[in-house]
Design a protein around this nucleic acid. Structure first.
Lengths: 145, 145
DNA sequence: CTTGTATACTTGAGTACGCAACGATCTTAG
DNA sequence: CTAAGATCGTTGCGTACTCAAGTATACAAG
């Protein structure tokens, strides 16, 4: 319980500060950054929208609107899928690649400052391990009973 | 970095699920609950709005609107401050006390299920300790240099 | 008293989502 | 082929916030 409360508060405080910095320095929101990083590491630097949604834990509609913005900024472009006309890939543009590479630098430093620097190396690993056990999808057990 | 990503994802997944349940079972949002709990533990079950804001990491305007809703539902009431006409206390009503006591039960169980049950007792304490080191306020150092 | 300046709270406008409903397309069964 | 059902994406609408500006009060200095 104590752990959960601290978890909540820390999340609010840190994401707020990270957002402000990311916005100031690169004009991106945290979710923007998150999506760009996913694309950056994806094969061909392109992904289906559904897969992005699953990865970054937004809903499909959130992704649509978020990508609208990134397309408008020229960081991402739509690309049709030849084998399935329903899907449209979101692909990083050249500008997108440069943007994410630049943003990564400062953003990682910010994360390190606000988050990582509070722990020693071993502690970071412990923390990562513990957090890794938490559920990422709605717990299906609750539905089927 | 890995730890941070897991932190972000876990937060999104767990709060989403907790919100849904809290909404279904008690008609409250996570923030509603959070505020009610603060009031419940406050002296006289009343707090200044500013202090609530600081405690739950919302802005003052967010608190105003959130309390509007709770007042409308009759869980909280406004109470003027005799020594300072600027402040109006938010005070739990009888209904509010009953509501939070009821909600606590299921909400704690939900937190335990989604969050706590992933750890053993010692691990929970470790986690709480580690999370407790994270900053809760915008880091002032960044401003003054 | 008046004139700042700080604090408490509210309000208007904007934003980043979620949910539910929709159209388009794929897939499978007949 | 048609029909039924699942999946991908978008859109309308609602909501929970934030920020910036405004009002009202307190307090301190002249």
């Amino acid at each position: 319980m104590a752990a959960w409360l601290r978890f909540l508060r820390a999340h609010a405080a840190i994401t707020r500060e990270l957002s402000v910095r990311l916005e100031e320095q690169h004009g991106l929101t945290l979710s923007d950054f998150d999506v760009l990083v996913q694309l950056y590491h994806a094969e061909g630097r392109a992904m289906r929208r559904v897969d992005i949604a699953r990865q970054v834990l937004l809903t499909a509609s959130g992704i649509t609107r978020l990508l609208d913005g990134l397309e408008h900024s020229g960081l991402v472009e739509k690309r049709p899928c030849q084998s399935d006309a329903r899907v449209s890939y979101a692909a990083l543009t050249e500008a997108g690649v440069r943007k994410i590479e630049a943003a990564r630098e400062t953003h990682h430093a910010d994360i390190q400052e606000l988050f990582g620097s509070n722990f020693e190396r071993g502690e970071q690993e412990t923390l990562a391990e513990l957090l890794g056990r938490l559920p990422l999808a709605p717990t299906a057990e609750a539905c089927s009973g």
